[in-house]
Nucleic acid binder design. Structure first.
Lengths: 105, 105
DNA sequence: TTGACATGTCGTAATGTTCCGATATATTAA
DNA sequence: TTAATATATCGGAACATTACGACATGTCAA
């Protein structure tokens, strides 16, 4: 004891982490997660907030659902999505503290 | 007042954030940042810790330096890198709390 | 000067990602 | 049933990323 200790995450775990970050690393997916952390929304509502067509939002949502970030439930012909991975809250807070956040009208 | 308020980051800022996340989203770059948050290291030391050849580590370092994450200083024929962006600490903490961290020998 | 070492840079092939149009499915209303 | 709405999926073109070999530069020791 006495030298400088180095605390490392295994390369295997960092590969997992990198995969999660890559999935998150898209402006529309970040907005989707940011919204879903504050409530449940449909594909159409999320698409409108991202200013993209619904089919593209649907693809982003499918990607995030397959990796366990989100879950969904169908109500009539609408589908509501929710955040399933609690750690997303933490990362979004980091992003918001660095890049800002404003109350939407 | 009274409705459900939605706090959003602008799509422009989220694009910046996504760019940063994409740069971070690589296992070797994550390990490099994790090490540099705990001290200064040379290209060769970082390459060894990532189990990659030095030229590849050099490319990762150049990428992270160009986007402002890192700075470097030359000492003889070695180059030491440091973390320049303080928010990296926060994100790494998120990753470590989710994916674990162990004391290296 | 020569040789060894540490780092940096350049092409490029392989791979992955993003976006878009077209189409498919499912649900509700008329 | 038909039409309209909401969501999902598919194929492919355009673009970005990664890893690797080869080479270039700069520094030190002998």
């Amino acid at each position: 004891m006495g030298g400088t200790k180095l605390n490392l995450t295994t390369l295997e775990s960092l590969s997992e982490a990198a995969e999660c970050l890559r999935i998150l690393a898209h402006p529309h997916r970040l907005r989707i997660v940011q919204m879903l952390l504050q409530g449940d929304y449909t594909v159409g509502e999320l698409a409108a907030a991202c200013e993209i067509p619904s089919p593209m939002a649907s693809e982003h949502l499918r990607l995030m659902q397959r990796c366990g970030f989100l879950t969904s439930q169908k109500e009539g012909r609408k589908v509501y999505y929710q955040v399933a991975e609690p750690h997303l809250q933490d990362i979004l807070h980091c992003i918001e503290s660095r890049f800002g956040v404003e109350a939407a009208t």
